[in-house]
Design a protein around this nucleic acid. Structure first.
Lengths: 226, 226
DNA sequence: AGCGATGTGACACGAGTGTGACACGGGAAA
DNA sequence: TTTCCCGTGTCACACTCGTGTCACATCGCT
């Protein structure tokens, strides 16, 4: 089994150094595809399924961000940005666009490679664990991590289990009674309104995705893709 | 056991100072091989297996980069570049070529030596066993050595296995139950609170890195890069 | 408009966790 | 063997923080 990596970099020497490094590791562990300008990169992203991408940001043709966006709309393979020293804004923008990690020039190939392996392992794990998705919400039952638009949000225990219940029954209307029985289990001597409060706090923490929890008056709540 | 170091430098006085310095350290800790021009260096790289190389960039015959490349194609021993003041471009190119560290002339021999030891230790560790890293924490599963910011810390058995578990699942929230089943295995007749205590003692021993272990109330613990 | 249902803020209680101290037990040193 | 020490689990206490409830505002349906 080998991993397919796309390396995009316009400096010929650096591109060669990087691709040589990856090709040299393991016995054919990596299948390396390279591109030296944005247009070329976009074509290759469209035509292939990569396990990992390493993108320079400053590129002729199209920026690394554009390539990243194109890749994200297709799948969610891990992406590492390569950025020039001191361009913190780029890093920030990179994270917003949805990159997973970055290295700052000058960087050591070893360091880049270590990050590659790390990301790869993590994405493998994410595949294995059962993901619950709905609209902008992603919940990983194995890691118990909740993401909204690829940004992690922190929620409390009750809210977490409530969200799991909602996700497992998305589009269904869940009555307060049903929620109480599922989440509160043992101590059912709480008011129906406790559910309201839990829902409220969940909404608060979900931020932009709060609208996905709809109130169905007289019956309960339901989670939608909005 | 001794380490084999190649020092390449065309200034005779400096070359002598460096090699004397390394030879004087420890009782035969270093086996020093020297070269004063690129061609000589290339030959010696081809004929030997070094544990460390110190390369001047400006050389008659062939540049330090060429020597570095030759060395890289052969193995991956740590390399330190020696560069003249102000030539940042060289540094950049150095990292791209795959050097691990550099010093700028004029430099103190002590400083160079410190970097040497650091690199050596790191590369030794890296090749010996699988390293687990997260933030300032580095754990070597083979030697069972735990480092925080390159300083070794001593921890007990339970804490060690707990830390391994955390590192192998970094960013995941691990419930007390999961931890109990993994670490305590056989005798599950211990309280959940035993986990708390283990976590506390691990935190104590991790010192400055203690903050990387986050408490997730109602669910468990998780290790982050902070 | 009127009334029930839901959202929102504040507050208090209690579960969950950090921390120090202690006890038990096994292994090392004498 | 005895003695001591270190590792580890448990308990008690303090404190933080999650969470349910209440009161009031707002919304939505009839």
């Amino acid at each position: 089994m080998s991993y397919k990596v796309l390396i995009v970099e316009d400096l010929p020497e650096l591109l060669e150094a990087m691709s040589d490094f990856y090709r040299g590791k393991g016995a054919g562990l990596w299948e390396v595809v390279t591109a030296s300008d944005g247009k070329d990169a976009l074509t290759k992203v469209a035509d292939n399924d990569f396990d990992l991408m390493i993108l320079d940001i400053m590129l002729p043709g199209a920026s690394g961000f554009d390539v990243c966006k194109a890749a994200r709309s297709k799948g969610d393979c891990p992406i590492i940005f390569v950025t020039a020293l001191g361009s913190e804004n780029s890093i920030l923008k990179g994270y917003e666009t949805g990159c997973d990690d970055y290295v700052v020039k000058p960087f050591s190939l070893k360091q880049l490679y270590a990050k590659s392996l790390g990301l790869l392992k993590r994405s493998k794990k994410a595949e294995e664990g059962d993901l619950l998705r709905c609209g902008m919400i992603t919940l990983n039952k194995r890691t118990m991590i909740v993401m909204v638009n690829d940004r992690e949000v922190s929620i409390n225990a009750k809210e977490y289990f409530l969200l799991v219940y909602l996700l497992e029954n998305k589009d269904s209307i869940l009555t307060r009674r049903a929620i109480l029985e599922r989440i509160w289990k043992d101590d059912l001597n709480v008011t129906d309104r406790a559910v309201d409060t839990a829902i409220r706090r969940l909404r608060d923490n979900l931020g932009e995705a709060s609208g996905q929890i709809k109130t169905v008056i007289g019956r309960g709540y339901r989670l939608t893709e909005e």
